[in-house]
Nucleic acid binder design. Sequence first.
DNA 1: AAGACATCATTGCATATGCAACGAATTTTC
DNA 2: GAAAATTCGTTGCATATGCAATGATGTCTT
Lengths: 154, 154
Amino acid sequence: MTDDPPTEFDLMAFTPYRLAVVAQRLSELLARQYRDRFGISIPDWRVLVHLAHSGGASVRDIEARVAMEKSKVSRTCKRLETRGLIAKRAHDTDRRLVHLTLTDEGRQMMRDLLPLAAAFQGEVEARLGADFARLEQGIDGVLSRFDPAVTETD
Amino acid sequence: MTDDPPTEFDLMAFTPYRLAVVAQRLSELLARQYRDRFGISIPDWRVLVHLAHSGGASVRDIEARVAMEKSKVSRTCKRLETRGLIAKRAHDTDRRLVHLTLTDEGRQMMRDLLPLAAAFQGEVEARLGADFARLEQGIDGVLSRFDPAVTETD
DNA sequence: AAGACATCATTGCATATGCAACGAATTTTC
DNA sequence: GAAAATTCGTTGCATATGCAATGATGTCTT
Protein backbone atom coordinates (compact mmCIF):
# COMPACT_ATOMS: atom_id res chain seq x y z
CA MET A 1 0.00 0.00 0.00
CA THR A 2 2.16 2.90 -1.14
CA ASP A 3 -0.16 5.36 -2.73
CA ASP A 4 -1.04 8.87 -1.67
CA PRO A 5 2.08 10.73 -0.66
CA PRO A 6 1.23 12.99 -3.64
CA THR A 7 -1.64 14.52 -1.70
CA GLU A 8 0.77 15.75 0.92
CA PHE A 9 1.96 18.66 -1.18
CA ASP A 10 1.98 21.98 0.66
CA LEU A 11 1.55 25.07 -1.48
CA MET A 12 2.78 27.30 1.35
CA ALA A 13 6.19 25.68 1.11
CA PHE A 14 6.43 25.91 -2.66
CA THR A 15 9.00 28.51 -3.61
CA PRO A 16 7.36 29.75 -6.83
CA TYR A 17 4.12 30.33 -4.96
CA ARG A 18 5.81 31.99 -2.02
CA LEU A 19 7.65 34.33 -4.35
CA ALA A 20 4.45 35.20 -6.17
CA VAL A 21 2.76 36.04 -2.89
CA VAL A 22 5.47 38.31 -1.53
CA ALA A 23 5.90 40.03 -4.89
CA GLN A 24 2.20 40.66 -5.11
CA ARG A 25 2.07 41.91 -1.55
CA LEU A 26 4.78 44.53 -1.98
CA SER A 27 3.51 45.52 -5.40
CA GLU A 28 0.00 46.14 -4.17
CA LEU A 29 1.21 48.19 -1.25
CA LEU A 30 3.28 50.33 -3.56
CA ALA A 31 0.77 50.47 -6.39
CA ARG A 32 -1.80 51.88 -4.03
CA GLN A 33 0.48 54.83 -3.30
CA TYR A 34 1.22 55.50 -6.96
CA ARG A 35 -2.43 55.30 -7.81
CA ASP A 36 -3.73 57.39 -4.93
CA ARG A 37 -1.23 60.19 -5.25
CA PHE A 38 -0.38 60.24 -8.94
CA GLY A 39 -2.98 58.17 -10.74
CA ILE A 40 -0.48 55.84 -12.35
CA SER A 41 -0.31 52.07 -12.61
CA ILE A 42 2.68 49.79 -12.23
CA PRO A 43 3.26 49.53 -15.99
CA ASP A 44 3.12 53.34 -16.13
CA TRP A 45 5.61 53.53 -13.29
CA ARG A 46 8.06 51.17 -14.93
CA VAL A 47 8.10 53.05 -18.19
CA LEU A 48 8.44 56.42 -16.49
CA VAL A 49 11.28 55.23 -14.30
CA HIS A 50 13.16 53.82 -17.22
CA LEU A 51 12.81 57.02 -19.17
CA ALA A 52 13.90 59.09 -16.18
CA HIS A 53 16.89 56.84 -15.78
CA SER A 54 17.89 56.51 -19.42
CA GLY A 55 16.89 59.91 -20.69
CA GLY A 56 15.23 58.37 -23.74
CA ALA A 57 14.47 54.95 -25.17
CA SER A 58 12.58 52.98 -27.78
CA VAL A 59 9.72 50.61 -27.12
CA ARG A 60 12.10 47.74 -27.66
CA ASP A 61 14.58 49.12 -25.14
CA ILE A 62 11.89 49.36 -22.53
CA GLU A 63 10.59 45.90 -23.30
CA ALA A 64 14.04 44.49 -22.68
CA ARG A 65 14.94 46.50 -19.62
CA VAL A 66 11.72 46.52 -17.74
CA ALA A 67 10.34 43.01 -18.12
CA MET A 68 7.20 43.98 -20.01
CA GLU A 69 5.76 42.70 -23.21
CA LYS A 70 6.00 44.66 -26.41
CA SER A 71 2.31 45.41 -26.74
CA LYS A 72 2.02 46.24 -23.09
CA VAL A 73 4.78 48.80 -23.42
CA SER A 74 3.20 50.21 -26.55
CA ARG A 75 -0.20 50.68 -24.96
CA THR A 76 1.29 52.08 -21.79
CA CYS A 77 3.19 54.65 -23.81
CA LYS A 78 0.09 55.61 -25.72
CA ARG A 79 -1.67 56.27 -22.43
CA LEU A 80 1.24 58.26 -21.02
CA GLU A 81 1.50 60.32 -24.17
CA THR A 82 -2.21 61.13 -24.04
CA ARG A 83 -1.73 62.27 -20.46
CA GLY A 84 1.12 64.48 -21.54
CA LEU A 85 3.76 62.74 -19.45
CA ILE A 86 5.91 61.45 -22.29
CA ALA A 87 6.61 62.47 -25.88
CA LYS A 88 7.01 60.25 -28.94
CA ARG A 89 9.05 61.18 -31.93
CA ALA A 90 10.72 59.31 -34.74
CA HIS A 91 14.27 58.14 -34.30
CA ASP A 92 16.71 60.20 -36.33
CA THR A 93 18.41 57.51 -38.34
CA ASP A 94 16.20 54.42 -37.96
CA ARG A 95 12.62 55.30 -38.66
CA ARG A 96 11.26 52.03 -37.34
CA LEU A 97 12.11 53.15 -33.83
CA VAL A 98 10.01 55.43 -31.69
CA HIS A 99 12.05 57.70 -29.51
CA LEU A 100 10.38 58.20 -26.14
CA THR A 101 11.24 60.92 -23.65
CA LEU A 102 9.69 62.48 -20.59
CA THR A 103 7.95 65.80 -21.11
CA ASP A 104 8.58 68.61 -18.66
CA GLU A 105 5.40 67.59 -16.94
CA GLY A 106 6.57 64.00 -16.78
CA ARG A 107 9.91 65.03 -15.38
CA GLN A 108 8.15 67.11 -12.78
CA MET A 109 6.00 64.17 -11.74
CA MET A 110 9.09 62.01 -11.39
CA ARG A 111 10.64 64.56 -9.10
CA ASP A 112 7.74 63.96 -6.74
CA LEU A 113 7.43 60.26 -7.38
CA LEU A 114 10.99 59.06 -7.05
CA PRO A 115 11.46 60.20 -3.45
CA LEU A 116 8.35 58.25 -2.60
CA ALA A 117 9.83 55.14 -4.16
CA ALA A 118 13.11 55.71 -2.36
CA ALA A 119 11.22 56.02 0.90
CA PHE A 120 9.42 52.77 0.20
CA GLN A 121 12.70 51.04 -0.44
CA GLY A 122 14.01 52.42 2.84
CA GLU A 123 10.94 51.16 4.64
CA VAL A 124 11.42 47.68 3.21
CA GLU A 125 15.06 47.60 4.26
CA ALA A 126 14.23 48.89 7.72
CA ARG A 127 11.42 46.46 8.33
CA LEU A 128 13.31 43.44 7.07
CA GLY A 129 16.47 44.13 9.01
CA ALA A 130 18.92 41.29 8.56
CA ASP A 131 16.49 39.45 6.31
CA PHE A 132 16.86 42.17 3.73
CA ALA A 133 20.37 41.15 2.73
CA ARG A 134 19.30 37.52 2.62
CA LEU A 135 16.36 38.32 0.40
CA GLU A 136 18.48 40.33 -1.98
CA GLN A 137 21.07 37.59 -2.19
CA GLY A 138 18.37 35.04 -2.83
CA ILE A 139 16.92 37.20 -5.58
CA ASP A 140 20.32 37.55 -7.18
CA GLY A 141 20.64 33.80 -7.06
CA VAL A 142 17.42 33.32 -8.96
CA LEU A 143 18.29 36.04 -11.45
CA SER A 144 21.64 34.50 -12.25
CA ARG A 145 20.69 30.84 -12.13
CA PHE A 146 17.37 31.15 -13.93
CA ASP A 147 18.38 33.51 -16.67
CA PRO A 148 15.94 33.10 -19.57
CA ALA A 149 18.61 34.05 -22.09
CA VAL A 150 20.79 31.19 -20.94
CA THR A 151 18.70 28.35 -19.67
CA GLU A 152 15.04 28.45 -20.60
CA THR A 153 15.37 25.33 -22.67
CA ASP A 154 14.69 22.50 -20.22
CA MET B 1 22.43 73.90 -7.83
CA THR B 2 21.06 70.83 -6.10
CA ASP B 3 18.43 69.42 -8.36
CA ASP B 4 18.37 66.12 -10.20
CA PRO B 5 19.46 63.35 -7.88
CA PRO B 6 15.89 62.03 -8.39
CA THR B 7 16.74 60.95 -11.90
CA GLU B 8 19.36 58.61 -10.52
CA PHE B 9 16.83 56.01 -9.44
CA ASP B 10 17.69 52.49 -10.58
CA LEU B 11 14.79 50.14 -11.11
CA MET B 12 17.10 47.14 -11.09
CA ALA B 13 17.93 47.80 -7.46
CA PHE B 14 14.33 48.32 -6.36
CA THR B 15 13.22 45.40 -4.25
CA PRO B 16 9.55 45.33 -5.28
CA TYR B 17 10.57 45.25 -8.94
CA ARG B 18 13.24 42.61 -8.37
CA LEU B 19 10.76 40.43 -6.57
CA ALA B 20 8.22 40.82 -9.34
CA VAL B 21 10.79 39.78 -11.91
CA VAL B 22 11.98 36.66 -10.13
CA ALA B 23 8.43 35.62 -9.28
CA GLN B 24 7.38 36.03 -12.88
CA ARG B 25 10.41 34.14 -14.12
CA LEU B 26 9.81 31.07 -11.99
CA SER B 27 6.07 31.18 -12.57
CA GLU B 28 6.44 31.25 -16.32
CA LEU B 29 8.88 28.41 -16.31
CA LEU B 30 6.52 26.33 -14.23
CA ALA B 31 3.34 27.43 -15.96
CA ARG B 32 4.74 26.29 -19.26
CA GLN B 33 5.09 22.77 -17.90
CA TYR B 34 1.58 22.70 -16.46
CA ARG B 35 0.16 24.03 -19.67
CA ASP B 36 2.09 21.80 -22.04
CA ARG B 37 1.51 18.58 -20.17
CA PHE B 38 -1.83 19.09 -18.49
CA GLY B 39 -3.47 22.08 -20.08
CA ILE B 40 -3.92 23.96 -16.84
CA SER B 41 -3.15 27.52 -15.81
CA ILE B 42 -1.65 28.80 -12.59
CA PRO B 43 -5.03 29.68 -11.07
CA ASP B 44 -6.17 26.16 -11.98
CA TRP B 45 -3.09 24.73 -10.34
CA ARG B 46 -3.56 26.66 -7.14
CA VAL B 47 -7.14 25.56 -6.71
CA LEU B 48 -6.35 21.96 -7.51
CA VAL B 49 -3.44 21.86 -5.10
CA HIS B 50 -5.48 23.30 -2.31
CA LEU B 51 -8.24 20.80 -2.86
CA ALA B 52 -5.74 17.95 -2.97
CA HIS B 53 -4.24 19.19 0.24
CA SER B 54 -7.41 19.99 2.14
CA GLY B 55 -9.68 17.30 0.78
CA GLY B 56 -12.44 19.85 0.24
CA ALA B 57 -13.07 23.55 0.61
CA SER B 58 -15.38 26.46 -0.14
CA VAL B 59 -14.64 29.30 -2.50
CA ARG B 60 -13.97 31.50 0.50
CA ASP B 61 -11.49 29.01 1.94
CA ILE B 62 -9.57 28.96 -1.30
CA GLU B 63 -9.65 32.71 -1.62
CA ALA B 64 -8.05 33.00 1.81
CA ARG B 65 -5.53 30.22 1.49
CA VAL B 66 -4.34 30.64 -2.03
CA ALA B 67 -4.04 34.41 -2.49
CA MET B 68 -6.66 34.71 -5.21
CA GLU B 69 -9.63 36.96 -5.53
CA LYS B 70 -13.12 35.69 -4.92
CA SER B 71 -14.32 36.06 -8.47
CA LYS B 72 -11.13 34.59 -9.85
CA VAL B 73 -11.59 31.52 -7.69
CA SER B 74 -15.21 31.26 -8.72
CA ARG B 75 -14.45 31.38 -12.43
CA THR B 76 -11.55 29.01 -12.09
CA CYS B 77 -13.78 26.52 -10.34
CA LYS B 78 -16.42 26.83 -13.00
CA ARG B 79 -13.81 25.97 -15.62
CA LEU B 80 -12.44 23.06 -13.63
CA GLU B 81 -15.92 21.71 -13.04
CA THR B 82 -16.69 21.90 -16.75
CA ARG B 83 -13.52 19.96 -17.43
CA GLY B 84 -14.59 17.34 -14.92
CA LEU B 85 -11.67 17.85 -12.56
CA ILE B 86 -13.62 19.09 -9.56
CA ALA B 87 -17.16 18.69 -8.24
CA LYS B 88 -19.38 21.32 -6.67
CA ARG B 89 -22.11 20.54 -4.20
CA ALA B 90 -23.95 22.46 -1.55
CA HIS B 91 -22.56 22.51 1.94
CA ASP B 92 -24.57 20.33 4.31
CA THR B 93 -25.48 22.84 6.97
CA ASP B 94 -24.72 26.24 5.42
CA ARG B 95 -26.25 26.51 2.00
CA ARG B 96 -24.39 29.69 1.12
CA LEU B 97 -21.21 27.69 0.84
CA VAL B 98 -20.17 25.66 -2.16
CA HIS B 99 -18.34 22.52 -1.23
CA LEU B 100 -15.59 21.77 -3.72
CA THR B 101 -13.80 18.46 -4.09
CA LEU B 102 -11.60 16.75 -6.62
CA THR B 103 -13.27 14.21 -8.84
CA ASP B 104 -11.57 10.87 -9.43
CA GLU B 105 -10.26 12.31 -12.65
CA GLY B 106 -8.97 15.37 -10.79
CA ARG B 107 -7.29 13.20 -8.21
CA GLN B 108 -5.69 11.18 -10.95
CA MET B 109 -4.33 14.29 -12.60
CA MET B 110 -2.87 15.44 -9.32
CA ARG B 111 -1.08 12.15 -8.92
CA ASP B 112 0.78 13.00 -12.12
CA LEU B 113 1.08 16.69 -11.48
CA LEU B 114 2.36 16.82 -7.91
CA PRO B 115 5.55 14.87 -8.59
CA LEU B 116 6.30 17.34 -11.34
CA ALA B 117 5.90 20.21 -8.90
CA ALA B 118 8.06 18.44 -6.35
CA ALA B 119 10.72 17.94 -8.99
CA PHE B 120 10.58 21.62 -9.86
CA GLN B 121 11.02 22.54 -6.22
CA GLY B 122 14.00 20.20 -6.06
CA GLU B 123 15.47 21.82 -9.12
CA VAL B 124 15.12 25.26 -7.59
CA GLU B 125 16.81 24.17 -4.39
CA ALA B 126 19.59 22.45 -6.27
CA ARG B 127 20.30 25.34 -8.57
CA LEU B 128 20.23 27.96 -5.84
CA GLY B 129 22.47 26.07 -3.46
CA ALA B 130 23.24 28.21 -0.43
CA ASP B 131 21.14 31.04 -1.81
CA PHE B 132 18.06 28.91 -1.41
CA ALA B 133 18.02 29.17 2.38
CA ARG B 134 18.67 32.89 2.16
CA LEU B 135 15.84 33.38 -0.27
CA GLU B 136 13.43 31.43 1.90
CA GLN B 137 14.41 33.40 4.98
CA GLY B 138 13.98 36.62 3.10
CA ILE B 139 10.54 35.55 1.93
CA ASP B 140 9.57 34.65 5.48
CA GLY B 141 10.71 38.08 6.53
CA VAL B 142 8.44 39.77 4.03
CA LEU B 143 5.54 37.50 4.88
CA SER B 144 5.80 38.24 8.59
CA ARG B 145 6.69 41.91 8.41
CA PHE B 146 4.30 42.87 5.63
CA ASP B 147 1.27 40.94 6.76
CA PRO B 148 -1.82 42.59 5.24
CA ALA B 149 -3.97 41.49 8.16
CA VAL B 150 -1.73 43.34 10.57
CA THR B 151 -0.19 46.34 8.93
CA GLU B 152 -1.76 47.42 5.66
CA THR B 153 -2.75 50.76 7.12
CA ASP B 154 0.16 53.02 6.34
C1' DA C 1 -39.77 36.17 15.47
C1' DA C 2 -38.94 40.01 12.42
C1' DG C 3 -35.96 43.29 10.60
C1' DA C 4 -31.23 44.84 10.24
C1' DC C 5 -26.86 43.35 9.20
C1' DA C 6 -23.23 40.17 7.56
C1' DT C 7 -21.44 36.50 4.64
C1' DC C 8 -21.08 33.71 0.43
C1' DA C 9 -20.78 32.93 -4.46
C1' DT C 10 -21.80 34.58 -8.96
C1' DT C 11 -22.16 37.84 -12.59
C1' DG C 12 -21.96 42.38 -15.41
C1' DC C 13 -19.03 45.50 -16.91
C1' DA C 14 -15.05 48.08 -18.07
C1' DT C 15 -10.37 47.49 -18.60
C1' DA C 16 -6.06 44.85 -19.09
C1' DT C 17 -3.56 41.19 -21.02
C1' DG C 18 -0.95 37.90 -24.29
C1' DC C 19 -0.41 36.38 -28.71
C1' DA C 20 -0.49 36.42 -33.52
C1' DA C 21 -0.80 39.11 -37.55
C1' DC C 22 0.22 43.12 -39.92
C1' DG C 23 2.58 47.17 -42.33
C1' DA C 24 6.55 49.86 -42.45
C1' DA C 25 11.47 50.23 -42.31
C1' DT C 26 15.99 48.20 -42.38
C1' DT C 27 19.52 44.72 -43.06
C1' DT C 28 21.20 40.63 -45.26
C1' DT C 29 21.94 37.62 -49.05
C1' DC C 30 22.89 36.50 -53.59
C1' DG D 1 20.81 46.53 -56.27
C1' DA D 2 16.67 43.61 -55.86
C1' DA D 3 14.54 39.97 -53.31
C1' DA D 4 14.38 37.64 -48.95
C1' DA D 5 14.65 37.80 -44.27
C1' DT D 6 14.58 40.50 -39.97
C1' DT D 7 13.31 44.12 -36.78
C1' DC D 8 10.13 47.48 -34.88
C1' DG D 9 5.82 49.16 -33.21
C1' DT D 10 0.81 48.83 -33.42
C1' DT D 11 -3.51 46.62 -33.48
C1' DG D 12 -7.33 42.83 -33.63
C1' DC D 13 -9.01 39.43 -31.11
C1' DA D 14 -10.02 36.24 -27.59
C1' DT D 15 -9.49 35.72 -22.90
C1' DA D 16 -8.47 37.21 -18.15
C1' DT D 17 -8.91 40.41 -14.56
C1' DG D 18 -10.66 43.52 -10.62
C1' DC D 19 -14.35 45.69 -8.68
C1' DA D 20 -18.94 46.65 -7.56
C1' DA D 21 -23.53 45.02 -7.48
C1' DT D 22 -26.71 41.31 -6.86
C1' DG D 23 -29.35 37.52 -4.89
C1' DA D 24 -29.42 33.96 -1.69
C1' DT D 25 -28.66 32.41 2.83
C1' DG D 26 -27.29 33.00 7.88
C1' DT D 27 -26.65 35.48 12.08
C1' DC D 28 -27.56 39.08 15.33
C1' DT D 29 -30.39 42.45 17.82
C1' DT D 30 -34.06 43.68 20.38
